[in-house]
C-alpha cells in the first residue's frame, strides 16, 4: 500500500492555489489534513497527477466570529476548532461533534474543511452543517459563491464544488433564542466509525417546551439527511415521551437507509429513532438540570 507517483506543489497563497487548480483541473487533488485522502492514495483508489498541499497556505486557517456567526477557514485543524473558545461559545454543536472525528492524532492534523469537502457518508461534520444551515464559501479563480448546506452534500464523497473550485470557509450562523445542542452516535464499537449519528439543536421556550428544532442524521443515506418531520413533531407535540417516540418514528420513516455488512437498513431506522429520542432527552435533561 504505497501511493502512485504524483507531482507535489505547496502554494503559499490562496491565489496560487486557485491558479494551480485552474491549471490542473481534475488532474489535481487538494491535500488538506490528509486523514481521509492519504488512505485513498495509499490504497491507490485515487491517483491524481498533482497534489496541491494547502498546508502552507496560512490564510485558510482561521476562526472568527461575527455577530454570533462562526466562520471557520477550511484549513482550520479540527483540534484547533475543538479547543477554540470561539467555537464553544458560538457553535457548541460543532464543539460537541468534533471529538467523534477519529482520534486525537487524526484531529491534530485533520481539518474542518477537509472532512466537509471529503463528504464521507459516515462523517459527523456534514450532519452538523446541515442541522445548522451552514453556508459554504467556495472560491475559484476570480470568483466566489455561497452554497447552502442543503445543496452542498450531493452524495457519498461528492459535493457541489465544481472543477477548479475550492472550499474556502464555512459559516455557521448562530441559532436564535435559548439554544441547546447534542451530538450522539452509535457504532459497532464504542468509538470509531458510527452506524448512525445525529446532530440536534433545539430552541427551548421559557416554559421548557421545544420552540424550534433542527435535526440532521448521518449514516442513513449517501448524504446527511435533515429530519424535518421529526422536527415538526417535537415543536408541535405536547411535552412527554409520546412526542419523543413519535418524533423518533417520523425520523425513522423519513430516511431510506441501505443494508450493508455493518448493519441492516431496519436497524438504521431503529437507531435513528433511538438517537432522536436520546438527543432530545439529553438536551431537555441538561436544560432541566441547569
Amino acid at each position: 500500500m504505497k501511493p502512485a507517483p504524483f507531482e507535489y506543489v505547496s502554494p503559499e497563497s490562496e491565489e496560487e492555489v486557485l491558479d494551480l487548480l485552474h491549471q490542473h483541473g481534475d488532474d489535481a487533488r487538494l491535500l488538506a489534513g490528509g486523514q481521509s485522502l492519504v488512505p485513498m492514495l495509499n490504497l491507490r483508489i485515487v491517483q491524481p497527477e498533482v497534489i496541491i498541499d494547502l498546508g502552507r497556505c496560512p490564510s485558510l486557517a482561521f476562526i472568527s466570529a461575527e455577530n454570533g456567526t462562526l466562520v471557520c477557514g477550511a484549513m482550520t485543524r479540527q483540534m484547533t476548532a475543538e479547543r477554540s473558545p470561539a467555537v464553544r461559545e458560538n457553535c457548541p454543536l460543532l464543539a460537541k461533534a468534533l471529538p467523534y472525528l477519529g482520534g486525537t492524532a487524526h484531529r491534530n492534523r485533520g481539518t474542518v474543511g477537509g472532512t466537509l469537502a471529503h463528504a464521507d457518508r459516515l462523517a459527523e461534520l456534514p450532519a452538523v452543517a446541515l442541522a445548522l444551515d451552514a453556508e459554504f464559501i467556495a472560491r475559484k479563480s476570480g470568483s466566489e459563491r455561497m452554497i447552502a448546506a442543503a445543496d452542498f452534500f450531493l452524495t457519498d464523497l461528492t459535493t457541489a464544488l465544481e472543477e477548479g473550485e475550492m472550499l474556502h470557509s464555512i459559516r455557521l450562523p448562530r441559532a436564535d433564542g435559548n439554544h441547546h445542542t447534542a451530538f450522539v452516535e452509535v457504532g459497532n464499537r464504542r468509538h470509531g466509525f458510527a452506524i448512525v449519528g445525529l446532530a440536534a439543536a433545539l430552541e427551548i421556550a421559557a416554559d421548557g417546551t421545544v420552540a424550534g428544532a433542527r435535526l440532521a442524521a448521518m449514516g442513513v443515506g449517501a448524504a446527511p439527511v435533515r429530519l424535518h418531520e421529526a422536527e415538526q413533531i417535537l415543536v408541535d407535540g405536547p411535552a412527554g415521551d409520546d412526542t419523543l417516540r413519535a418524533a423518533g418514528e417520523a425520523a425513522a420513516q423519513a430516511i431510506d437507509p441501505d443494508d450493508d455488512i455493518h448493519a441492516s437498513a431496519v436497524y438504521r431506522r431503529r437507531l435513528t429513532s433511538t438517537l432522536v429520542r436520546r438527543a432530545v432527552q439529553e438536551i431537555l435533561g441538561n436544560e432541566a438540570g441547569s
Binding site: L31, Q35, D53, A105, H106, N108, R109
Partner: peptide
C-alpha cells in the same frame, strides 16, 4: 504514531515532503 511539532500524528498519513 509520532509527535509532529509536538502533537501526535500518523506518520503513515503524511508525506515526508509535506
Amino acid at each position: 504514531t509520532v509527535l509532529l511539532d509536538g502533537r501526535t500524528a500518523r506518520s503513515c498519513l503524511h508525506f515526508a515532503v509535506q
